[in-house]
Design a binder for these strands. Sequence first.
DNA 1: CTGTATCCTCTACGATACTG
DNA 2: CAGTATCGTAGAGGATACAG
Lengths: 123, 123
Amino acid sequence: MIIGDPYSRDCPTRKVLDRIADKWAVLVLGLLMGGPMRFNQLRRTVDGISQKMLSQTLKSLERDGLVSRKAFATVPVTVEYAITPLGQTLADTVDALRVWAETHMEAVTAHQQRYDAGAASGA
Amino acid sequence: MIIGDPYSRDCPTRKVLDRIADKWAVLVLGLLMGGPMRFNQLRRTVDGISQKMLSQTLKSLERDGLVSRKAFATVPVTVEYAITPLGQTLADTVDALRVWAETHMEAVTAHQQRYDAGAASGA
DNA sequence: CTGTATCCTCTACGATACTG
DNA sequence: CAGTATCGTAGAGGATACAG
């Protein structure tokens, strides 16, 4: 049954991949590393996210235990989201990708340009 | 304009994220770590991938310089794909995610179940 | 302020068929 | 065997409006 085989359809590793695939989740997670934030505060900070996606992302992160939600019964309801210890471990891991990007993105871009130039001239 | 800010729309880090987001790319990359493979060989090994996606994925990986393509002018054309040194560095980084998954996936799943149970009862 | 529900579009992907 | 081109569909995600 090979539960650890990423090449089979049902594998926990693929699930993590899908979570990382969600760029909004990664972005929000990274943002919360800097401390708790409120809903609209997140929305304003993450460039381009819609309420729907933010809401959806936060709910998903909370369900996974990566982020915690705390509501305050103030007059206009206030909600604070914070990263959990578990979420912190994932965020740290994902951060390695950011480092990779910063280190190698230039090489990738350069290669893309060479590739595009070559493909255009029929090579 | 903060080009290095992942929270702005145009940021190299987001591009890497998008690449990782592509589970097929990750899967193929991981597979090629074990040595060069041919097109249909990859197709047979990666459970559930379509020719279209495999073709597309390989082309994309090649363009990024993460994978190299070598064609042999045999009677039925033979093509071999191999991971590049650059691709290797990414694969290694991504592997950290696999490790995270194996380490924490159980905790995540457990939390999901608790969450679902709580949400159902209205807590 | 913090969400949820609805609609609507747009694209990613699979299936299929065809070429070198 | 290795790919490309076309078509159809399902789902992701944005915009909007509404509710607690």
